[in-house]
Design a protein around this nucleic acid. Structure first.
Lengths: 205, 205
DNA sequence: TAGATTGTTAATCGATTAACAATC
DNA sequence: TAGATTGTTAATCGATTAACAATC
């Protein structure tokens, strides 16, 4: 019963399933079950089967799931069976860390350029990139057909940069600035904010 | 109707309310309403009133909420009306970025020490910290009574470090390693994983 | 007083889980 | 065949929203 408006919460579990399948594959396993996956992740097996059923039938009764097959299917569903080029905006400490992060490429994403507006940062080398002037961003995004941007700029400029990204018809923003971006609904924003995590955990302290 | 097991999802919205109140205060406003807050955040006003009602009554009919008062109340509820000392484990690029991040202190958290196990990193200076040998971690945590740890280590060592933190009775872990930490339920873990965000957004690409 | 907004209840909506027929 | 596990339906659980009496 393929796609009909998949709940956001299901979409956020798929990458976790995918990662677990990759782990299992690396352990040399060929077959798994909703029960085994659930055990590993602390989810119910019913939830895993239900989540997968939004996209099709991937298992065999009595047997379970072929790990390589399900993995390939999930990659297709999530559109990470290819590599998406990303631009990073912001060459501060966080930008440095993101530029050196080795975890994007094996997951379907590749950083291809870094932009900043500070004169003393432009031209600097980070990992194998040269920081470019953010004024060059629009042309770059259009010419390279960039759909995904990582935003690692200070809070004060985040909204104005986001407005620019809207103009450029960026599809997805991974936002490390405080979560106040005001963008139209067809543009996806995923907020990463350590303070929200810390403060909500502090309730239990 | 004070506390009776507050849903996790409510707890994760409180920091967002708090931040918005701080923004409103900085704009010079003294009073707000569930409607105004909801508008800003894209939440329903009913949700905001419901969320707050888990903790008490903070508004006035016909008027709304006193911003400074509600802000103080939320800080108390979240236990961020004080400053929590944190230890950072991992002095890589991400560790650098976190050590330089200015956003923790005003939100109730302060980084007080950095640990790593790599000989060439130990003794190095990051921000105003000297990187310490991770073997010194247990004593430090006990003596300084640290409850909160930021984990910014490679995936392969994350679980073994986490096991150590369990021993030390750490209460909250902000985890930047891939989300596989296996800890008892009384220890809070908040996972920060950019790949989950990117991959779930990629579905719409 | 008239207007506005709270806190809360009840209704609605959506997500999770239990259960099981189908079937490998 | 007997045992296991899927995909799916129905039941349950929980979260969101609508509505409104209370009241500032």
């Amino acid at each position: 019963m393929p796609t009909d408006a998949v709940p956001e919460i299901v979409l956020e579990r798929l990458p976790i399933y995918l990662r677990t399948l990759e782990l299992l594959a690396r352990e040399g396993k060929a077959i798994t079950s909703s029960h085994e996956l659930g055990e590993r992740l602390g989810f119910s097996s019913a939830q895993i089967r239900k989540d997968l059923s939004y996209f099709g039938e991937f298992g065999k009764q009595g047997t379970g799931y072929n790990i390589e097959f399900l993995r390939a299917q999930l990659k297709q569903i999530l559109h990470v069976d290819r590599v998406w080029d990303m631009a990073l905006i912001g060459a501060g400490d966080l930008g440095h860390a993101l530029a050196h992060y080795r975890g994007f490429e094996p997951k379907g994403f590749r950083l291809v350029a870094i932009f900043d507006n500070a004169p003393h940062k432009i031209g600097a080398r980070i990992a194998h990139h040269i920081v470019q002037n953010v004024t060059a961003l629009p042309q770059f995004i259009r010419e390279q057909n960039i759909r995904v941007v990582i935003l690692a700029v200070p809070a004060q400029v985040a909204q104005s940069v986001a407005a620019q990204l809207v103009e450029l018809d960026i599809a997805a923003i991974l936002n490390y600035a405080p979560p106040t971006l005001n963008v139209p609904p067809h543009i996806r924003v995923y907020n990463i904010d350590p303070v929200v995590g810390l403060q909500s955990m502090a309730y239990y302290l």
